[in-house]
Computed example of a mutant assay.
Amino acid sequence: MADLPPNLQTERLTARAVVLGERLDTAGLEREDAISSAPIAFRQGEGLVVVFRYGVVVMIGLAPLAEDEVLRSLASRVQGPVAEREEETIKLATREDKGGRPDGIVRIGAPSYDKLLVAADAVAKSAALAADERQVAQVFDTIEPWARRLAETGRSPGGRRAMTRQIGSALLVQHRVGARVAVRDKPDLLWDRPDLERLYARLEDEFELVERVEALGRKLDLIGETVTVMTDLIDTERSLRLEAIIVGLIFVEIVIVLIQMAMGWRPH
């Protein structure tokens, strides 16, 4: 693997992850001098860029202007761009600190591309989780007034279609976390570099990836159960209204027949 540029050998490095959209088309990004092909990673000036297909790009050791240039260059490859980009940043220390581990800084020891790729994987997953957590929070903000109205009035709110959309949003988050981002899966790099598992474990603990996935799963289950109950209530109320309309029509028909009979009309 190629030697690190001086900018990636400094005592402090910043890894910035940005969620650009649902997916990133990585076709054509492969280079002969690529650092990695899965995920695609390449040098950009004196820094490192790592592109994840699930819509996240991680930039390490880049100046703000260089980061903006990277984001602009990837804009045409974004599928399902997000309205508000989620970002996550982590500080990396490339040497041991005698004074102890500073808050918010992960020590990786002597820097290497493999270590930076492991850090990029963790921070990218954390950013993707943050975006999903925000989307789930928005779903909860929508469901809460429905539940409050049900508790206060005993009536389910209208709008089965709106509830169905919320179910769709929850399913998209569930699919993203489980199938695309695969937060629970370790980087493929660890198969070849098992010595880096301790570093990934520290990063996993730093971002609380497992705990956040479990919490997100519980919230998704709760959303599914809540919306299902409410849609069932709406369907039940609609069925009762339909039955009432049918009974009313039958009653009206009986009244008409009785009136006609009272007026001397006889059906043939």
Rank of each mutant, 00 (worst) to 15 (best):
V229G: 05
A201C: 06
E214H: 10
P64N: 08
E144Q: 13
E87T: 15
K125E: 05
T14K: 07
L8Y: 02
A41N: 04
K98F: 11
T89V: 15
G99A: 13
P6C: 01
R165H: 12
V51W: 02
V173H: 05
G217Y: 08
F251N: 05
A262V: 02
A170F: 05
P6T: 03
L258R: 12
E197T: 15
M230Q: 14
G159V: 03
I167A: 10
A83P: 02
Y200M: 04
R77Q: 11
P267K: 01
W191A: 13
R198I: 10
A2W: 08
F52D: 00
A110V: 11
L222H: 12
V49R: 00
E46I: 01
K186R: 15
V70P: 04
W146R: 06
R148D: 11
G158Y: 04
F251A: 15
Q79R: 15
T153K: 09
V247H: 09
L209F: 09
T164C: 02
L71R: 09
R53E: 14
E88R: 13
G99T: 09
V173F: 06
R184C: 01
G99K: 10
A137W: 05
G158N: 07
T14F: 02
D221S: 14
R193Q: 13
V247D: 12
V255M: 13
R161T: 14
G100E: 08
A162K: 10
E206N: 09
L116F: 04
R53Q: 12
Y54S: 03
F207H: 06
I256S: 10
D68K: 15
V213F: 06
R148L: 11
I254S: 04
R101E: 15
E69A: 15
A83W: 10
F140R: 03
S76M: 07
A244W: 06
T228K: 13
G104L: 10
H268T: 03
T226A: 11
E211K: 12
A83T: 14
E237A: 02
L116A: 04
T26M: 09
S73F: 01
R180A: 07
P102S: 12
P81S: 11
E69D: 14
D114T: 07
S73Y: 02
L249P: 00
T164Y: 07
Q9F: 00
L29P: 00
G99M: 06
D188Y: 02
R161K: 12
T226Q: 09
K219M: 10
R77E: 08
R184S: 12
D33S: 15
T231E: 07
L4C: 04
F251R: 05
P64D: 10
V136F: 06
A170I: 06
A66V: 09
D221R: 15
I234F: 00
I234W: 01
V183G: 06
L199E: 06
Q135P: 00
S112Y: 09
D33Q: 14
D188P: 00
V181F: 05
A182I: 03
V123Y: 03
I167E: 07
D132F: 03
I245V: 13
G28A: 08
G217M: 07
I256Y: 09
T94F: 08
H175I: 11
E86M: 13
P64S: 10
E67P: 05
Q166K: 07
L29D: 05
M59S: 04
L171E: 14
